[in-house]
Write a protein that binds this DNA or RNA. Structure first.
Lengths: 162, 162
DNA sequence: CATATTAAGGATATATAATATCCCTATTGT
DNA sequence: ACAATAGGGATATTATATATCCTTAATATG
């Protein structure tokens, strides 16, 4: 069970979008080249962000993506769920209902204990992701990235943003 | 990102093994029929449990599987990791290193912030699973299963255990 | 000892999901 | 008018999950 690499892509793209000056957009092309990713496929991930309402888009030259909300209002969970979907990571197939000892008409009232426990763990994972925002990420990245590289990077992307 | 159904199978099988009388074994066949699962494929999951040291096995008629330790010493994480592997659910491909602004010889010192955050969430998931044991599960199942069905089920499996 | 039953594991087949590319359309800034 | 863009459909490729089959070695039982 491994998350799609699109999740990683989307998070890094959001990190860049978080640092973008007000009103500017970044194209798929720029984001793909910056991260060395396949443009067309990255585009699908960005479309997911758009459909989830996390980013605004605009067409034409100098078009592209920008965050739809301030970075402190976008959580990791928002991004992860936009790309991976909101379904739980554990699917209960109710195999207890195949028990040959089960009376014909018997119906279990709720989900079984196995599922409840697995879903609690899933929820703990989501909780953790919900507590980290893009602005938290931004602060961490600024701290661990050389200032010159950080500046060069934004000069580079803004140069490609028309 | 969805866990293999083998995880569900392994957990339900462990639940049954937890309730088994001392010294008895249950065969793949019995476990498969009890849960309505494909015997050969379930066998692969049980082999994973065996390789992880969670269950003991013995050959021949009346052979099969039993827990290798008391149920309170086997956690959900043990079972999940035996089947799914211990790898983290988020893989960092270091796409920041594709940044064209990155100086030639530059080398990042540690994993990037995105990976650290995702790995923390992964760890929260594992923590939760580590805190639930098979004996916890057993208590929950006993409570939510009609006593007669519970008894019938163990009579049924023990009948098939030689 | 002979036999039936079992786990282990290799080989292979099938189905589903992830990754990737291509192409067409409508929109928009220049 | 033109070039650049997002959106999205269709399709191809690769990887993973699911499933079956078969062989081997061990073992309880008659």
């Amino acid at each position: 069970m491994i998350l799609k690499s699109q999740v990683e892509w989307a998070l890094h793209c959001c990190a860049i979008l978080s640092g973008l000056p007000e009103g500017r957009y970044l194209s798929t092309k720029a984001l793909a080249e910056l991260h060395g990713l396949p443009k067309e496929y990255l585009s699908k991930a960005l479309q997911n962000l758009s459909q989830a309402g996390l980013v605004d888009t605009t067409l034409g030259p100098s078009g592209g993506y920008r965050l739809a909300k301030p970075p402190e209002q976008v959580t990791f969970l928002d991004v992860v769920e936009a790309v991976e979907g909101k379904a739980r990571t554990f699917v209960c197939n109710n195999i207890r209902e195949n028990n040959p000892c089960l009376p014909e008409k018997y119906c279990y009232s709720g989900p079984c204990a196995v599922a409840r426990i697995m879903w609690e763990a899933d929820e703990a994972w989501r909780d953790k992701l919900r507590r980290v925002t893009l602005s938290d990420l931004g602060r961490m990245l600024v701290q661990e990235t050389p200032a010159a590289l950080w500046k060069d990077t934004f000069d580079w992307v803004l140069d490609r943003a028309g």
